[in-house]
Simulated assay, not measured.
Amino acid sequence: MLKDFRTFIARGNVLDLAVGVIIGGAFATITKSLTDDIIMPVVGAIFGGFDFSSYFVRLGPVPATYKGSPDSYAQLKAAGVPLFGYGEFVTVVINFVILAFIVFLMMRSVNKLIARLEHEKASGQAEPAADPAEVVLLREIRDELKARGTIPPVA
């Protein structure tokens, strides 16, 4: 069973998936920063505030022991106040749309490259296939025999 598991893990698809998850995590961090630090402040300025994620509606009372700001989404949420945080949801949706658009652009570029390579291959512009090892070996033998003068040069 351990051998089967090792074979499964060593397959290219599993390793590719692992690399994809790691790269995806790093890419998600970049996208989150792009959204939180660049795009959302502009969207927030357009809609009347710089912190778009602070848009929320309180659905329940604030505890009497609460000492934080009544306008702080994060503090109210930490205090257990039921909130309808539509600003945070909009931020997450915008994050998703940006990430999906970037992945779309990457896949579009890859598909165009693949189509161009297939077109070149179909039109005969692609690189010729490498000669089989036997042909290469026979050429080397022929060239060595020519160099020794064993066979006359071919015209």
Rank of each mutant, 00 (worst) to 15 (best):
R11Q: 13
E134Y: 10
E140I: 04
D71K: 06
D51T: 15
L83P: 03
V93H: 05
A155M: 09
R108F: 14
F96R: 10
T91M: 08
L34V: 14
R142G: 02
G149H: 01
K112G: 01
Y55A: 12
R139C: 01
A100G: 05
F104W: 15
Q125V: 04
T7K: 12
A133N: 06
T91H: 06
I102L: 14
V110W: 01
F101N: 10
A115W: 01
E140Y: 08
P153M: 01
E134R: 01
G25F: 07
P41I: 10
V21E: 00
F5G: 01
S54H: 15
A18T: 09
E134Q: 09
R116S: 04
R58L: 03
K112R: 15
E120T: 01
A79H: 09
S53C: 13
F56I: 07
A100C: 07
P132L: 08
Y86T: 08
K3G: 05
G44W: 09
D131Y: 09
L138Q: 09
P63C: 03
R139P: 01
V81H: 07
G48S: 13
L83I: 10
F47Q: 13
I141N: 12
F56H: 11
G20N: 02
D71I: 08
L59E: 02
L76C: 10
A74C: 08
P132M: 06
T31M: 09
V21D: 00
L99S: 13
V43P: 08
N111Q: 13
D143I: 00
E118N: 10
V93L: 14
F96T: 13
A79T: 04
P70A: 03
A64T: 07
N13M: 04
L117K: 09
M106D: 11
E140N: 12
N95F: 11
P132A: 07
G25Y: 12
R6F: 09
Y55W: 15
V21Q: 03
V14A: 01
Q125G: 14
G20D: 02
P61N: 10
V90A: 15
L99V: 12
K77M: 09
R116P: 01
Q75I: 03
A100H: 05
S33C: 03
F50M: 15
G149A: 00
L113W: 04
L113Q: 02
V62Y: 07
L76M: 11
E134N: 05
A129D: 11
A130H: 05
E140A: 13
L137S: 11
K32T: 15
T31F: 05
V43R: 08
G85C: 11
S123R: 10
I114P: 01
V57S: 03
K67I: 14
G124S: 05
I141V: 14
Y55P: 02
R58T: 05
R11C: 09
T91S: 14
V42T: 13
I151P: 06
L15Q: 10
E127H: 08
V92W: 11
I46L: 14
